[in-house]
Write a protein that binds this DNA or RNA. Structure first.
Length: 485
RNA sequence: GGCGCGGUACCCAAGUGGCUAAGGGAGAGGUCUGCAAAACCUCGAUUCGUCGGUUCGAAUCCGACCCGCGCCUCCA
């Protein structure tokens, strides 16, 4: 039984998709006016966890993520730089996908762009106009909130309780009511515009999600995600537009993730406290998988306070798992299977699934993994692990790694997890090309050690260390690995 | 002012009525080692923001309060 916290209603609910084995998922994508920061990626990471978990549980997932490539900020940026809107946004779109790939976030099935769906948006505005939910003022169109009685259901904001006198866009002064929002903005001088059946202009922000979700997922679909800051007004307005137009329920489950904060404050471009993935990797030498685990390991409804200390901790946790897998691969074991291990694997798997089933409680799932590692390590120390056990354990880790996707399997272990990581592939290549050279050095060192020439042995070890290769003397011989920062 | 989220060990973080309050990181001790490193093991909160209340029993439910943060304006 899978349960999620549904913002609509504000409680935990059992998840039932519209179709038994398919989940229709819409996640709010980036506005491509600047480089995405790790706070933005936290949302995409939470959505990745959700999606991978659903896939893991046997659902098909149809995933749509919009790309907002026209809005006030993109227009402003393009004008400032004297380039076309498309030219301006393209580099950020590119960077966005680079970030997804770096962090191992699965691709959506569709990435519709606002600029490619403008005519459909105009058609929706026209439809709302005909049904009396919209009105026109000087070429702009607004949604008439007074007409939509369900307004405020998602965010629990009663219309009357909206703070009076808050800032109103200077170009929207002609609205009937402050709370009404723009569906369509009339053409302005120097700004890009589209010729449509409702006149020249450009879409408002909320309309794109209503149009593009319906286009790929239908009038009603299962899950809609985003950051908590989207609850109001963005998602509230989407509901109003979509339901007013279709007369049907828009979305069954609304899932929102909390913010990533830094030094106690929300990370955002306007506050100037952002950190990008590129910055972490290039300036701090961070392993992208440590970033992934950090973003993943705090429950999505809890604020995540980003610190470099937390990043180090995530990296250490990750290494614990990686070391475990590497150890399993390097042991020389007797044939056979220990029933105790079979039970441990079963328990881990069960608890792992149970955790995620409970509103994506990743902490509980990770605990299951670490508990198993701990118990197996004891068995390894007692030499109670047999060959089949090691294989089963590796399979089990590979299996849950379909969701976590953070584990690096050493070159001698071949797992088909169907996913390649850029960084992993790089490291593996490095390992292969260095392998011969290092083996030679290790032999030299072993010789020196046998002759009790420890000075030479230590020098060889230090030299390799300087090159980022760590040697470890174990019972089964010398093991080496490349240290990733 | 309205609507929300959170406050559990040095740090991160589960647990939401009852066995010893998970797990990870850091630290201390130990095993291993020529020495290291790495790895592994052991240890760690009589206590869950504060104060009351309900209960045989509360970190968990109720009330009040304190603190931090977010949204109400573009924002993941």
């Amino acid at each position: 039984m899978i349960k999620f916290f549904n913002t609509l209603g504000g409680k935990i609910e059992t998840f039932h998709p519209l179709q038994e084995d398919t989940v229709k998922l819409y996640t709010c994508g980036p506005t491509v006016y600047d480089y995405a920061h790790i706070g933005n990626y936290r949302a995409y990471m939470f959505e990745d966890l959700l999606k991978r978990f659903l896939l893991f549980m046997g659902f098909d997932v149809i995933h749509v993520m919009n790309i907002t490539d026209v809005d006030d900020k993109t227009i402003k940026g393009a004008i400032e730089q004297g380039v076309s809107l498309a030219e301006y946004t393209e580099k950020y779109v590119h960077a966005f996908f680079y970030g997804l790939e770096t962090l191992g976030i699965m691709k959506a099935d569709h990435y519709p762009r606002a600029t490619e769906n403008v005519q459909e948006m105009a058609a929706l505005v026209k439809g709302l106009l005909e049904k009396g939910y919209a009105y026109e003022r000087e070429g702009s169109y607004y949604f008439k909130i007074a007409k939509f009685s369900n307004y405020g259901k998602l965010s629990n904001i009663d219309q009357r309780e909206l703070k009076e006198g808050v800032r109103v866009d200077s170009d929207e002064y002609e609205k009937e009511s402050v709370q009404d929002f723009a569906l369509w903005k009339a053409q302005k001088e120097d700004e890009p515009f589209w010729e449509t059946e409702i006149g020249p202009g450009r879409p408002g922000w909320h309309i794109e999600c209503s149009v593009m979700s319906a286009k790929y997922l239908g009038d009603t679909f299962d899950i809609h995600c985003g950051g908590v800051d989207n609850i109001f007004p963005h998602h509230e307005n989407e509901i109003a537009q979509s339901e007013a137009f279709s007369g049907k329920k828009f979305v069954n489950y609304w899932l929102h993730c909390q913010h990533l904060i830094r030094d106690g404050e929300k990370m955002s471009k306007s506050r100037g406290n952002i950190i990008t993935i590129q910055e972490l990797i290039k300036n701090h030498g961070t392993d992208p998988m440590a970033i992934r685990l950090l973003l993943l390991s705090t429950h999505y409804r809890k604020m995540l306070n980003f610190t470099f200390d937390a990043l180090d901790q995530a990296k250490s946790s990750l290494e614990r798992i990686n070391e475990f897998v590497a150890k399993l691969g390097s042991l020389s074991l007797k044939e056979g299977e220990n029933p105790e291990v079979v039970t441990l694997v079963d328990e881990m798997r069960q608890k792992f699934i149970q955790g995620l089933s409970n509103d994506l409680n990743i902490s509980s799932s990770l605990t299951a993994v670490f508990e198993m590692i701990k118990k197996v390590n004891i068995l390894i120390a007692k030499e109670k692990i047999l060959k089949t056990d090691a294989e089963n354990l590796i399979k089990a880790i590979a299996s849950i790694n379909k969701i976590l996707r953070v584990v690096s399997f050493p070159p001698n272990i071949h797992v088909n997890d169907g996913m390649k990581v850029g960084k992993d592939a790089q490291v593996k290549f490095l390992e292969r090309s260095l392998s011969h050279k290092i083996d030679k050095k290790i032999k030299e060192r072993e010789q020196a050690r046998q002759q009790k020439n420890y000075a030479l042995a230590d020098k060889i070890r230090d030299d390799l260390m300087a090159q980022g290769v760590v040697l470890e003397d174990t019972k089964n011989g010398v093991r080496w690995k490349i240290i990733k920062k």
